[in-house]
């Protein structure tokens, strides 16, 4: 009985996604392509915050690693596929290193450690000029070709297909993985860490692997950002983006990948389209407050931890 609305929703979303390029104009398609990049960042945040119970403000860090890596590859003439794979790998390695620290913490401390990781990365993006272009960012990234021999993608339709397609592949892969025993183990660590330990599971390792996977997802998001926006600066990977991502996750439901992506879409829609010029922060702030009061289930994943 419960399956019907779900299937209907999935079908409706898929049909809409296929129809959109025929209906929408360039700019709207580009906006959705940007949402795909931010959506992967939100999904990776949801994966850690909701599914693994590691609330994070620092997923912009692997996102930044992915974006700058893809940017350099684009300058070197690599195709989109290579950019995505290498960006994912670089972000995964980065997440492995930072994860060694992050997975030791829980609750508010985890939030603060990840905040420190995110801020340190943003500072590095600011300071390490030879690699990142400093405050001015990495500009003039050449248009990306998806595959060898493809056309450079400049307009809405190809970028939409590229970004939304890639995001779907990554999200479905993550979603399928979470439905296997591995996913059950991750949720087990969140729900009852002591019992998991008692039954001989290596909680630290499970969480570390989840952290690495989430890092890779965020890294792909960074690579998509480069393809769509063809520009990245420290402001794209700063505290504000972390906060928006967290808001997307809160709205969408911390334990739901798809909810997080929808939340990212809602946040971008509010920021770029609904709010009168300059009023976006006010509207987002109120949305944040309302989300905490009205959607307690949105925080369900977080609250299952015994941090009350």
């Amino acid at each position: 009985m419960k399956k019907w609305p779900t299937l209907a929703a999935v079908a409706a979303v898929l049909v809409t996604l296929v129809v959109l390029p025929f209906v929408l104009r360039n700019f709207a398609l580009l906006t959705i392509a940007r949402v795909a990049a931010l959506g992967l960042l939100a999904a990776s945040t949801a994966l850690l915050t909701g599914t693994a119970g590691l609330p994070t403000l620092g997923q912009v860090a692997p996102y930044a690693v992915g974006a700058y890596t893809a940017g350099h590859l684009a300058h070197a003439g690599a195709v989109g596929l290579v950019q995505i794979l290498v960006a994912a790998a670089a972000a995964a390695v980065f997440a492995l290193l930072t994860g060694l620290a992050v997975v030791r913490t829980r609750g508010t401390v985890c939030l603060m450690v990840t905040l420190a990781v995110g801020e340190l990365t943003a500072i590095a993006a600011d300071q390490w000029k030879s690699v990142t272009g400093g405050t001015d960012g990495m500009a003039r990234v050449p248009a990306v070709r998806a595959f060898w021999g493809g056309e450079p993608m400049l307009k809405g339709v190809p970028l939409y297909v590229y970004a939304v397609g890639t995001a779907l592949v990554v999200l479905v892969a993550t979603w399928l993985m979470l439905r296997t025993r591995a996913g059950a183990l991750v949720r087990g660590c969140r729900d009852n860490e002591e019992r998991m330990r008692a039954s001989g599971h290596r909680v630290g390792l499970i969480l570390l692997l989840t952290h690495v996977w989430a890092g890779a997802v965020a890294g792909v998001g960074g690579a998509l950002l480069i393809a769509v926006q063809r520009y990245v600066s420290p402001a794209d990977v700063g505290f504000e983006v972390s906060a928006l991502t967290l808001l997307a996750v809160v709205i969408g439901g911390a334990a739901s990948l798809w909810g997080a992506v929808a939340g990212a879409g809602a946040v971008v829609a509010v920021r770029d389209n609904l709010a009168p010029a300059g009023q976006a922060p006010l509207l987002l702030g109120l949305l944040f407050v309302a989300a905490v009061y009205v959607l307690p289930r949105g925080l369900a994943g977080i609250n299952r931890r015994r941090d009350a």
């Binding site: 419960k2 399956k3 609305p5 779900t6 929703a9 999935v10 409706a12 979303v13 809409t16 709205i251 969408g252 439901g253 739901s256 798809w258 909810g259 992506v261 929808a262 939340g263 879409g265 809602a266 959607l295 289930r297």
Partner: peptide, 11 residues
Amino acid sequence: TLPRLRSALAL
């Protein structure tokens, strides 16, 4: 399951 609220949100 995908809660209905979220599907509505996505749409």
